[in-house]
Nucleic acid binder design. Structure first.
Lengths: 338, 338
DNA sequence: TTGAAAGCGCTAACAG
DNA sequence: CTGTTAGCGCTTTCAA
């Protein structure tokens, strides 16, 4: 592999001059610059970042920590958003996965420090609170899709689950529905509580009754080990005669919405005519594949990734950010199920 | 940040001795080792990998190149498999995404060379052939989920789509089905051709007729921009009276299988009693959420990632691998739809 | 505008 | 078993 000295020799200048050209420093005569650039091209010289870093003590690498990536497919959009922003800034990203265990996570932080990572994006694969102490790691960090429990001084970018469900509920009401049910996620999940709360608040604001029997969980079992039961639950609700069942159902996620369609069909009910169904998440593999396709609230993962990377870059540049914790809107995507 | 010299001073030894301890080299007296380890702990010393690398000329970092990650959710398992193997080997991984454009890809290779990456895992998000010349980059590379078109000397790890569909077809036949239809993926996709070919070969081997009208594409439009039409297509096929329609349907993927269930239900047909349905991919977000759940062929993404990382590690260690191109089995996952 | 000398933190090579 | 010397490829510092 060619070094800066090889280039210097070839161009007939000192290595310091080559360094200047490579780093785009000013005060180089055009003639010299061109000669050096030619030499670089001829030798196919590629700078050794590690050597540079030993001197500058900045790595130009950002770290991304993820927990159990595998469970939610759209988490990939988070990464993509991060990558798209980082790569245009000329940095690279080192990705590490903790599998959710503390031991793994500590190993990851250590690796990051060994690499003298400039900053960290800590992403969880579903919206949740974490136990996080920024002092413990001494690396600028932005939380992505999660927040530091019990403190509001840790930068974070989150989806606005509450606002998303507000919009969905208002949409159904505007469409003339007043008898609306809600199939929740596992209530242990924070998104479940936010979404459900938004539904109830909007209903109340419109003086609409929330029927206790129409609000129930679509999952059973403990957090992490839950199994879906939306199909059975929805069949139960929809088995009531016309005047005694809801005309619309909000779902904690798209999977519940999908099972709701199955349940409705199994009872001979038409979606959306007999029962309107709204999902949440907009996992397109589901939402665009059901028949009818899902009207659902989109989780803006890509934008969250972008914004989080922006925030980290701003921190590293020493720019103060006005909002420490940002919530990004979850827009309603209208399709045919409601 | 503390350096090796700080530790040496603290422990009252030379920096070289500290280096020996840090790297676990032999020939150190227990007493010295303990003293150094104490100093390391007290100073919270973390080795500077970049400095080490300048000396050793090995980065300990592997690069992962992905194309359009976002489209298939299970691609994440690929990454997870890679990570799980790499991290236990003490290396780190640098991930870069090309967004599918050649320009981006060239930038990525350059970044990798700047980092003096030891080896590369080149992963595509669906099984396909790529134009790849290993000489062009001069970094040991293993292809993941793809293969170098027109050459068999480039290491690669792939799913055995053909074998998977053979298994699924044989399973249906063993269950007593003889009238089997097949809804294909976009035929431009290599997996589509392999899977369909396996189906036809097994049928022929069993002297079973393949009805032309029962074999059709579940997607329309060009590769990359296709839209699903499985619902309509399957309704058409299943509209025929009992004796003139298939009793089982193989699907190019789980999304087609899901739409097939919707189609069957819409005609008042029961799955699997009236029509058995088999998917492909085992995207669990779909396959475990439909009612009934999908019997489907699993794409072993996690194992592919693991194996590919193994292969790369072996290459870097100078061990020859017997098989250059490996195909991993796609097992049938039995659930309730067939 | 350019170059020489020094040194970043670490390890290779060798000596003791 | 341990230390010394040199040097990896680059940038900083300072002088020309």
């Amino acid at each position: 592999m060619q070094t800066i000295k090889d280039v210097a020799a070839r161009a007939g200048v000192s290595d310091r001059t080559v360094s200047r050209v490579v780093n785009g420093e000013p005060n180089i005569s055009k003639k010299t610059r061109v000669r050096v650039e030619e030499a670089i091209a001829e030798l196919n010289y590629i700078p050794n970042l590690a050597a540079r870093m030993v001197r500058t003590n900045r790595s130009g690498v950002l770290g991304v920590i993820t927990d159990v990536v595998s469970t939610t497919p759209n988490s990939v959009d988070l990464i993509r958003g991060i990558q798209d922003r980082i790569s245009t800034s000329g940095q690279s990203i080192l990705i590490a996965n903790t599998s959710g265990t503390l031991e793994e996570e500590n190993k990851v932080w250590r690796t990051f420090r060994e690499h003298r990572i400039d900053g960290v994006l800590y992403a969880t694969m579903y919206h949740r609170g974490i136990d996080f102490d920024p002092e413990a790691h001494a690396i600028p960090t932005v939380l992505v899709n999660c927040f530091a429990e019990g403190r509001d001084d840790v930068p974070a970018v989150l989806p606005d689950d509450y606002g998303g469900e507000e919009g969905a509920t208002a949409y159904l009401i505007a469409a003339g529905h007043s008898r609306i049910g809600y199939i929740t996620l596992n209530p242990a999940i924070i998104a479940a509580r936010l979404r459900r709360q938004a539904f109830e608040d909007v209903m109340r604001r419109h003086d609409l009754a929330v029927h206790a029997t129409w609000v129930t969980s679509g999952y059973e079992g403990p957090e992490g080990g839950e199994s879906i039961c939306a199909y059975e639950v929805v069949r139960e609700i929809l088995s009531a005669p016309l005047g005694e069942r809801p005309t619309a159902l909000l779902s904690g996620d798209d999977e519940i919405a999908m099972q709701s369609i199955f349940a409705a069909m199994s009872l001979g009910l038409k979606v959306p005519d007999d029962i309107a169904i709204v999902g949440f998440d907009d996992f397109q593999m589901i939402s665009t594949r059901t028949v009818p396709r899902l009207t659902t609230v989109a989780l803006p993962y890509y934008e969250i990734g972008l914004r989080a990377a922006d925030k980290l870059l701003a921190m590293l540049a020493g720019e103060a950010d006005d909002e420490v914790v940002e919530r990004l809107p979850c827009p309603l995507v209208r399709r045919e199920s409601a």
